[in-house]
């Protein structure tokens, strides 16, 4: 039970951090909110305030929740194997989270 939970949450963390990083670096397929117009668009016009945070944030949280559920469901049945993979998933998940936070800080500072 414990190894399975660590496996599932490690997968969820890794998936969320990966989706966040891909969405932040590529901006591919992001839905933008235009707060001055109250509209949503994939192709924001230049010179208009456009917010991509909603799409990036919701995609990140959805990916984390979905991957946690899927990994829980399809976790290896052998507890030892499950624990070994859980350790690897968490190591990768922490690395991706750290990388995402560092990239975001550098990206925001570079924009100024």
């Amino acid at each position: 039970m414990s190894a399975r939970a660590r496996f599932a949450t490690g997968a969820g963390t890794l998936a969320a951090a990966t989706v966040y990083l891909v969405a932040t670096t590529t901006r591919l397929g992001l839905l933008f909110y235009l707060p001055t117009r109250g509209e949503w668009t994939f192709d924001p016009p230049t010179g208009v305030i456009a917010m991509d945070w909603f799409a990036r944030s919701n995609a990140t949280l959805a990916a984390g929740a979905l991957a946690t559920w899927a990994a829980w469901r399809w976790a290896p049945s052998d507890p030892k194997r499950c624990a070994r993979h859980a350790g690897r998933l968490w190591a990768l998940g922490w690395m991706m989270l750290g990388w995402s936070a560092a990239y975001t800080a550098m990206w925001l500072i570079a924009q100024r």
Partner: peptide
């Protein structure tokens, strides 16, 4: 705001792990 997003999966993990362990 972006850090708050990155904390989301860890909050979920906290809930799941605290129930399972």
């Amino acid at each position: 705001e972006n850090l708050a997003t990155l904390l989301g999966p860890l909050v979920l993990a906290m809930v799941v792990l605290s129930r399972a362990e």
